[in-house]
């Protein structure tokens, strides 16, 4: 066990845990943030995507020791006072089916929109490599494009 200092959703955290614990399980089991999902444990499915120092990262293969001093944002911390535009559109466009993979997709999409405010289809293909077994891909793509349009146009 060792104490690891980092920040989660803007709050300083000191976690006394095995430094080899994947960030995913530190968030879920130690901090109670279960919006970040376990799907594969080998960075294949993307259900565990969080923002690590601002960049979409698969938390299941990041050991706790590697996040010392870093800023982690999880789905629970994505929104400000208001929902993120993606969260709003996900409801308006009825994007999720079972929804389990969707928090990871939203985190990947939020990072994409921050980097590329007007992403092309190819940008989306490259950024959203998450697995969705329910087949929501067409709606995910459409919602990201609409989010980009809303962000470009100011208020939604």
């Amino acid at each position: 066990m060792a104490v690891v200092n980092f920040s989660v959703n803007g709050q300083a955290v000191q976690l006394d845990a095995d430094p080899s614990t994947p960030l995913l399980w530190a968030l879920r089991d130690h901090l109670g943030l279960t919006g970040t999902k376990y799907g594969c444990g080998i960075a294949q499915c993307g259900a565990c995507t969080v923002h690590l120092n601002g960049a979409a990262t698969r938390s299941c293969i990041i050991p706790l020791s590697a996040v010392a001093g870093m800023e982690v944002v999880t789905i629970e911390g994505l929104a400000g006072e208001q929902d993120h535009v993606l969260q709003t559109l996900w409801y308006e466009m009825n994007v999720p089916q079972c929804g389990y993979c969707q928090t990871g997709i939203i985190m990947a999409a939020a990072d994409l929109l921050r980097r590329k405010p007007d992403p092309s289809d190819a940008d989306i293909d490259n950024a959203i490599t998450n697995l969705c077994r329910c087949g929501t891909y067409p709606r995910v793509r459409a919602a990201i494009h609409r989010a980009a349009a809303q962000l470009a146009g100011g208020a939604a």
């Binding site: 943030l33 279960t34 999902k37 969260q87 999720p96 929804g99």
Partner: peptide, 29 residues
């Protein structure tokens, strides 16, 4: 009417509790 699924708002905020997310006081794994 075609309302969207009612659990989408908590779902997209990471608050919807799936089976793997259950937290019960005193729980072990």
């Amino acid at each position: 009417a075609s309302p969207a699924k009612l659990h989408i708002p908590p779902l997209v905020r990471g608050e919807a509790v799936y089976g793997i997310d259950v937290q019960v006081p005193g729980m072990v794994h």
